[in-house]
Design a protein around this nucleic acid. Structure first.
Length: 478
RNA sequence: GCCCCCAUCGUCUAGUGGCCCAGGACGCCGCCCUUUCAAGGCGGUAACGGGGAUUCGAACUCCCCUGGGGGCACCA
């Protein structure tokens, strides 16, 4: 037995590049990374692109970008499985030679027939092992017919496969329920199980941390490793799945599931990382808003939960608001700037950006909400409009016209500072409670009944534009 | 159909036999503050799926049921 110091922890995140990075995958990546950084081990990246038909180059780059955005770094150059076919095929040959695997020659139609039979017999889909005892001559003859050749791993007929999962404890299954599975396809390409086993051995992976959807495959991979001569299998930790609100699996068909979707919506990486860390893990105390470093310091697979977790976007947004408040103003401005420029173009000056951020930071929940709330500053006067609900409230207000008149009179002659613009005294003079009628001013100047603090907004708008909008509202009301 | 995993407030979770007639957070509701509100403060609502067993004592252990999820293919 080697000591812990002699065998440092090595974990890997191994996405299949068949789309944008899903939050579930991101969570898996995060937990691996947390474990590595907590222990001081290595975090590696492996691109599982053995299935060329599902792989797209741009997804590979996109995954790297997304991980980078989250602040995840990796310690060695990523391994591309598509470049390692020789190693997998060599392993397959080794298994063939040792009798752990064998060649079969069924056509797709024949396999379908086998599955139909098995279904009839109430057996799980799979293979019936009919090719196991073919003689070399028979195999040669079958191949000569031009039949597809695959390589299958011979699973035990009896006995039990078991391993101890770091989060679930002992897990076992009867071998009789697992049929011989394909490790090399008829097109000569290796399959997941083989590539996985070979690479985990080659990369010296010590801890496999992945989603619970892969729990059952562990028995196969372990058998494969043993057949390949491996004597030091890694530890396995299967993370609970992330579910939608209706407890169905989180999928791309319903709402945002890609990390990039949340990024586009103005979720901060700090917040998403923090939220994801708490889906299936807790520090064991009451802390919730935690920095990456705090999470790394406290992380332990022992505190990983066993049951599936529902992804709660409301809580994510709350947490995002917490993070928006924690950033210093300059940093927040830097995060908002690109979104502002994308949306409003050159009109976004540094001064304006800085002021918008200053007044929005206290209440915002997403970056995008800050951008949206400041739209009234960038719209031209011709295009400025008040949304229908807000206007209806103004129309229904008892003394909307009086409020507008008072505001106009004040704004016409007051000093141009936020403090001087304060319209509360003018409204109080009318005998009204400012808080009750302020929405009239929000509607007139910002176009909606609620938004960024209105005195600051008027200040930002400038006297002429603000007066123009207030007067326009007064006229429209007449 | 077969196999595997899971089960505390609506949601994320704390809880590892007495500290629990179950704690925190989000959400929701109410009140307060207030320049609207998506912010802040205070308070409230709300859970151990059911049944057995073990024990002086069970949310915590065991069994059964129920429920939820996952896997099984030449996807990963």
């Amino acid at each position: 037995m080697t000591s812990a110091a002699a065998s440092p922890v090595r974990v890997r995140f191994s996405p299949a590049p068949s789309g944008e990075l899903h939050v579930g995958s991101a969570r898996t990546a995060l937990f691996n990374w947390f474990e590595a950084r907590h222990i001081g081990g290595s975090f590696l990246l492996r691109i599982e692109d053995t299935d060329a038909s599902r792989t797209r180059e741009e997804w590979i780059d996109a995954i790297g970008d997304t991980l980078g955005w989250l602040g995840i770094d990796w310690d060695e150059p990523p391994v591309r499985q598509s470049t390692r076919a020789d190693a997998y095929l060599a392993a397959a040959e080794q298994l063939l030679a040792s009798g752990h695997a064998y060649e079969t020659f069924e056509t797709p139609e024949e396999l379908e027939a086998i599955n139909a039979e098995r279904k009839e017999a109430k057996l799980p889909p799979g293979y019936d092992g009919r090719g196991r005892e073919l003689t070399p001559e028979q195999r040669k003859a079958l191949a000569a017919e031009g039949r597809p050749r695959t390589i299958r791993f011979r699973t035990p007929d009896t006995g039990t496969s078991s391993f101890v999962d770091l989060v679930r404890g002992p897990v076992s299954v009867e071998w009789a329920t697992i049929s011989d599975f394909v490790i090399v396809r008829s097109d000569g390409k290796p399959l997941f199980f083989l590539a996985n086993a070979v690479d985990d051995i080659a990369m010296g992976i010590t801890h496999v941390i992945r989603g619970e959807d892969l729990l059952d495959t562990t028995h196969r991979v372990l058998a494969l490793r043993a057949a390949l001569g491996d004597t030091e299998p890694p530890e396995y930790a299967h993370l609970p799945l992330i579910l939608r609100a209706d407890r169905a699996k989180l999928s791309k068909r319903h709402g945002a599931v890609a990390v990039e979707d949340f990024r586009a919506r103005g979720i901060l990486p700090e917040a998403l990382l923090n939220y994801l860390a708490l889906l299936g893990w807790s520090p064991g105390d009451d802390r919730e808003v935690m920095t990456r470093d705090e999470i790394v310091a406290s992380f332990s697979l022992e505190h990983v939960t066993k049951s599936a977790a529902v992804f709660d976007e409301k809580k994510l947004e709350w947490m995002n608001g917490e993070w928006i408040r924690r950033l210093d103003r300059g940093e927040l401005a830097a995060r908002v700037r690109p979104l502002m420029i994308e949306r409003y173009g050159a009109g976004v000056t540094e001064d304006l950006l800085d002021e918008v951020v200053a007044i929005a930071q206290e209440r915002a929940t997403t970056l995008v909400s800050i951008v949206e709330q400041s739209d009234f500053l960038f719209v031209t006067e011709e295009n400025f409009s008040i949304d229908d609900d807000a206007w209806q409230r103004v129309v229904n207000a008892e003394r909307g016209r009086d409020v507008l008149n008072a505001a106009i009179a004040h704004v016409e002659k007051c000093d141009w500072t936020v403090d001087a613009i304060d319209l509360r005294p003018a409204i109080s003079d009318l005998g009204m409670k400012p808080g009750k009628v302020m929405f009239v001013l929000y509607a007139a100047t910002e176009g909606r009944a609620a938004g960024l603090p209105v005195f600051d907004s008027i200040h930002l708008l400038g006297r002429e534009r603000a007066l123009g909008r207030l007067r326009a509202a007064r006229e429209r009301l007449a």
